[in-house]
Write a protein that binds this DNA or RNA. Structure first.
Lengths: 199, 199
DNA sequence: CGGAGTGTCGAA
DNA sequence: TTCGACACTCCG
């Protein structure tokens, strides 16, 4: 039985969202009894769906040949076995410029709806869409966008960027948005009904 | 061309005889520029004649089936390709109790001359003789015995024991000793001469 | 060379 | 004296 009052791990209201505080008591030496405090992010999402993924635009995981635990990790990314492979900051930037194309050239250009505001250092909406699509596919939590202020996040993204959320400003969904979406679904169902009837 | 000012290897007066100090600068990573210091013995004798040998009383090398580079080595035993397989401290102790025997029992008991003083943790003169015989057979340098003080050596044999020398106190050879040995040789030659004459 | 853990020292 | 901050050691 492992009685351990020496390790205390806790979320902490004073910390940015997703960060945790751990207190470790020194066990030996002159400074035994001293408490060292470590801060690190602890996230828990589906570990089978997080990077590294192949560096293509696909949001679906594709296995890579060698998949090891990251070796060159920093202190705050370590701690406890359940720790996750860290995401690279603004990793989506590596996907920039990738587009689907065929013999006739680029296909499938996209654009963002007005209410989605890009937040990262990205030059094209396509990258923002990739970030959003990845979050929708990977995350087990609701997608809200970044809830911190744009200034705070961009000044110190290592701390204030929430890696679980896509690089868009927080999106507010209004009752009007819900109503419009319901109408869209309704129309689609009607068209499907007609199509099945004439088949 | 390999310009390396990062490796500095030197004997050091503060170190026991035969030890060397090497400074290696870390070239990459977070700790680039940091200096690691390694201490190791650098000796060079005939590598084909050093342990491990079969664990018999024979002082002659007999090949063993598997002969790998030692894996569980300490840092100080590593370094540079010419480094030698480390001797186990007081390895001669493993030979203790081995004696030649025939159907009539043990043969060939031995004893040490007075001027040879055992130095190790050995219980029988036979082991000391094995140590001495191995040194005489293996070493490319003169056999002097241990030149450090008995107390220093036994308190920290890992550092102060000279593995190139047998576990006997330093032996002083006097002019008298040489004269007696010359007489012995002389007598032996005379007897050989007589034996050949009467054959 | 990295990482966990301890030592050390100045400021509060 | 306690509390950071970070230098350092030891080991894999």
């Amino acid at each position: 039985m492992n009685i351990s009052i020496e390790k205390k791990k806790s979320d902490c209201d004073a910390l940015p969202k997703g960060w945790q505080r751990e207190e470790v008591v020194r066990k030996t030496g002159l400074s035994a009894g001293k408490v060292d405090v470590y801060y690190y992010r602890g996230f828990r999402s589906d570990a089978s769906l997080v990077p590294p993924i192949r560096q293509t635009a696909s949001i679906f995981k594709q296995p890579v040949t060698v998949y090891k635990t990251q070796e060159s990790k920093v202190k705050t990314d370590l701690k406890q076995g359940t720790q996750e492979k860290p995401k690279q900051l603004f990793w989506e930037k590596r996907l920039e410029g990738l587009t689907a194309c065929d013999a006739n050239g680029v296909i499938g250009t996209t654009s963002l709806p007005k209410y989605i505001k890009p937040l990262g250092p990205y030059t094209s909406d396509a990258t923002t869409i990739q970030s959003l699509a990845t979050a929708l596919h990977v995350s087990s939590q609701p997608i809200t966008g970044q809830t911190g202020s744009k200034q705070t996040i961009m000044e110190n993204p290592g701390v204030f960027l929430n890696p679980e959320q896509p690089l868009i400003a927080a999106v507010t969904i209004t009752k009007d948005d819900l109503r419009r979406q319901e109408e869209r679904v309704e129309r689609a169902r009607l068209r499907l009904q007609e199509a099945l009837a004439t088949a």
